[in-house]
């Protein structure tokens, strides 16, 4: 594995005087690693994402990405949330193209290279199974399809770091599992670094290399767990014994956190 890509040194963050949202976070993420954060609600998982992408500065400690201290929004990252947040006045294709209109250096090349960029977007949409829906508007898509488009939007500018904040939380169980596989395949193909925040232990165990379990507020990392299931992982693994045991162990740890 390569050197640490994201490192947190004794990072704490307090939004206000009420106390820290997260506290004493020490961890490092390798380039190309898939990490998942799980924990009870309100444990500062989303805060962690904001620190990671530079949307918020830590109160104490230091966050480094790619060897550099994070001082402002990181342009090498893409984000997707529980709500797809697609712009209703843009077609799916134009929604996916949005980051290229903003992120440097593409924004200055957008007019000249538009054809090429549209090609990227179409290819990406095809890999997530949205071929033929490029000209549809978001409200014409189902929830799962919107989320696929949202992930495409997060990946179109080829970010090195993909941040996912409960991206599958609002979907039904079958669609969710389908999208796990979509994400797995995208990641296997491109090997960007992924930080996935989730409530779903099966999701974390199935997708991630490393699962971090966080305590209640103030959020601390109380357990780091490497998932050693062989890759590529098939969805069927999630219904087999070793996987189920693993999830149950994780569940037990979360249970302890909740009861303390």
């Amino acid at each position: 594995m390569s050197a640490a890509f994201v490192t947190f040194d004794d990072v704490s963050l307090a939004y206000d005087a009420a106390g820290n949202a997260i506290e004493d976070i020490n961890l490092s993420i390798h380039e190309g690693e898939f990490v998942a954060f799980v924990g009870p609600s309100g444990c500062g998982k989303s805060t962690f994402m904001k620190l990671c992408t530079g949307l918020h500065a830590p109160t104490t400690g230091a966050v480094r990405v790619d060897g550099e201290p994070v001082t402002g929004p990181l342009k090498i990252s893409g984000m997707a949330f529980q709500n797809a947040n697609l712009l209703p006045w843009r077609t799916t294709l134009d929604n996916v193209l949005l980051p290229l209109e903003i992120v440097k250096p593409y924004r200055h090349q957008f007019r000249k290279r538009r054809e090429e960029f549209v090609g990227w977007a179409r290819k990406l949409l095809k890999t997530v199974g949205l071929e033929g829906y490029e000209e549809q508007y978001p409200w014409q898509l189902s929830g799962g399809m919107q989320q696929r488009a949202s992930i495409c939007r997060a990946l179109i500018h080829q970010p090195r770091l993909l941040m996912l904040d409960e991206p599958f939380g609002a979907l039904d169980a079958f669609t969710r599992e389908e999208l796990w596989c979509v994400l797995r395949d995208l990641w296997e193909a491109q090997r960007f670094t992924v930080v996935l925040v989730t409530h779903d232990l099966r999701e974390a165990a199935f997708l991630a290399d490393t699962v971090y379990i966080m305590s209640r507020r103030p959020g601390r990392v109380i357990e780091r767990r490497e998932i050693e299931l062989p890759r590529p992982r098939a969805l069927e693994t999630t219904y087999r014994k070793p996987f189920i045991d693993l999830v149950q162990e994780l569940r037990a740890q979360i249970g302890e956190v909740r009861s303390t």
Binding site: K50, T53, G54, L55, P73, L74, K75, S77, G78, M79, A80, F81, N83, N85, L87, L98, P99, E101, I102, V103, K104, R153, A154, H157, M163
Partner: peptide, 19 residues
């Protein structure tokens, strides 16, 4: 959240407003 999506890309305030 929409603002975050764009700010992470390095969007300035004016970008967010116009787009």
């Amino acid at each position: 959240e929409m603002e975050d999506v764009l700010r992470v890309l390095g969007a300035r305030r004016i970008d967010v407003l116009l787009k």
